[in-house]
Design a protein around this nucleic acid. Structure first.
Length: 489
RNA sequence: GGCGGCGUAGCCAAGCGGCUAAGGCACUGGUCUGCAAAACCAUGAUUCAGCGGUUCAAAUCCGCUCGCCGCCUCCA
């Protein structure tokens, strides 16, 4: 089975064929660190986290590089506002980024180079481009000569003429052509700067990724990723720089994920409709956010709403309830009992992993993959439901195996990784903290109701149940006694 | 204006030329229960924005129309 990935460059799904057998080299554009990260950043980090985890699950070696842009116009402006240095500001938000990533359980990439630590690599690359006359110095800046790169526009599917016709290009008399973009910027007084053959300055944005990817992954590597908004100009320009400098293809496959929207609009600071990762995690378990993000395929837009998050939570709870039922089994089995699972049930569970893989192999279809987990949970519930006392050995083995598989597959999306019982009880106590009744009071009322029920005093029994329901406490009677849960508001 | 994407049941979402159009949430009926809840079972799109076309066969391919979104300026 092979992994198929939608390649932005070819606009088709292609089979992933690493340059080195079984070793995939991946570069992803990370954050520009000047503020807290929002859900869009979370989607980016989680999408590639999932992709890397899946490829590793398949037994492939993955070298995963994700950079930090720690010098740019915004960082300079924000640092000035806050009367601090760009370095201090950038580092502070890199630390905050890690706080969020750790909470989300995002694995660290193999390496996370910072732009400011690779100035030499960038100036070397710029020098090579100048030598080839693909770039030219002008008044302390250096520009890339877009018109000299015949294939310019091949990633984003644009033609130079089209862009010039309608684009809002700011006039810059230093450029030979308005479409040329900056590789090196002369620094203004007071701005951070590094020395270069063209005078003191700082790198343009695009050059850092070309320089760092070349250093860590080579002239040509397998996959380059980022958000769809990076296709143009960022990735188009990277491609132009790298291919012109190296005379080799830059990247085999480009992966671009979709945006998180709110009320179907892209989140942005100017619209004021963005939510930070920590805002979300105040109200939701990190796995709920992961579950939500993977409820659609990574290339589709994903609309954030409270309702959607509630749905995600309900769905995740359902899976945990299923796991918890199996976790409660003690391991003690009934001797010589007939297996309750039907041949069809057994087949569904036995093919779960295979079906999951085929979903993921098709451009990381996590939505379908989640569906397979739900189908499996349904089968497990059906079996556990039929087991009244001790489970037959064959069923027990099947359930344990199925749950282990669900957890293993869940790990790729980073869900279902907690002990189910603990997850559910932690959730319960968190919700309990929000309502005006204590666990002791609940237990007391349950006890009183138990007595009432034994006395067949249904009136009092129902009264207690209604009373608890007012506090959003829902009772459920079963063979083992009365349990309770908290209803969503 | 140019480029790209999307439009599938009340909502979310798979499906990428051919088995009964996955799955989730919500709803309804049944089993269970003293009654409930949970769980399980059952039920819902003769139809995939609309109109044409290609094909033995289309939600899936092509064309046009309508609607929505993104990129073309920093952006995940």
């Amino acid at each position: 089975m092979s992994v198929k990935i939608y390649n932005t460059l070819s606009r088709k799904k292609e089979v992933l064929k690493p340059l080195e057998p079984n070793h995939i080299k991946l570069y992803v554009c990370g954050i520009t660190s000047y503020d807290y990260c929002h859900i869009g950043h979370a989607r980016s980090a989680l999408a590639f986290d999932m992709i890397v985890r899946y490829l590793r699950y398949l037994g492939k070696e993955v070298t995963y590089i994700r950079n930090f842009t720690d010098i740019d116009d915004k960082i300079i402006a924000r640092a000035a506002e806050q009367k601090t240095s760009t370095e201090e500001l950038a580092n502070r938000f890199i630390d905050e980024f890690y706080v969020d990533m750790d909470k989300l359980g995002v694995d660290r990439p193999t390496m996370e180079p910072k732009a400011t630590e690779h100035i030499q690599e960038m100036t070397d690359l710029i020098g090579e481009l100048i030598d080839k006359d693909m770039a030219y110095p002008s008044h302390g800046d250096v520009y890339y000569r877009v018109g000299s790169f015949a294939e310019y526009g091949k990633l984003s599917g644009r033609k130079l003429e089209d862009m010039q016709a309608g684009a809002r290009i700011q006039v810059n008399e230093n450029k030979d052509d308005p479409m040329d973009f900056v590789l090196w910027k002369a620094s203004k007084p007071g701005e951070p700067s590094w020395s270069s053959p063209w005078g003191d300055g700082r790198p343009g944005w695009h050059i850092e990724c070309s320089a760092m990817s070349r250093k860590y992954l080579g002239d040509t590597f397998d996959i380059h990723g980022g958000g769809q908004d990076l296709i143009f100009p960022h990735h188009e320009n990277e491609l132009a720089q790298s291919e012109a400098a190296n005379n080799k293809p830059y990247v085999n496959m480009w992966i671009h994920h979709g945006f998180v929207t709110i009320r179907d609009e892209k989140m942005s600071k100017s619209l004021g409709n963005f939510l930070t990762i920590r805002d979300i995690l105040k109200h939701y378990h990190p796995e709920v956010l992961r579950f939500f993000i993977f409820s659609t395929q990574y290339r589709n837009p994903l609309d954030f709403s409270e309702t959607a998050m509630q749905n995600a939570m309900t769905g995740l709870d359902r899976l945990y309830e299923c796991l918890a039922a199996v976790e409660r089994l003690t391991g003690e089995c009934a001797a010589e009992s007939k297996q309750v699972a039907s041949a069809k049930d057994i087949k569904k569970l036995e093919t779960m992993e295979e079906r999951f893989q085929s979903a993921m192999n098709n451009d990381f279809n996590t939505a379908l993959a989640q569906g397979i987990l739900f189908e499996s949970a349904k089968v497990i519930n059906k079996i556990t439901r039929q087991i009244t006392d001790l489970p037959p050995q064959a069923d027990y083995d099947l359930l344990i195996q199925a749950v282990a598989t669900i957890k293993k597959l869940g790990a790729i999306m980073g869900i279902l990784q907690e002990n189910a019982g603990e997850y559910l009880s932690a959730k319960k106590s968190a919700m309990l903290a929000e309502i005006a009744i204590s666990e002791e009071d609940i237990q007391e009322l349950i006890l009183e109701r138990k007595q009432a029920r034994e006395d067949k005093n249904w009136g009092r029994s129902d009264e207690i149940r209604d009373q608890l329901l007012k506090h959003r406490i829902e009772l459920n009677d079963s063979a083992e006694g009365t349990g309770w849960s908290i209803k969503k508001s």
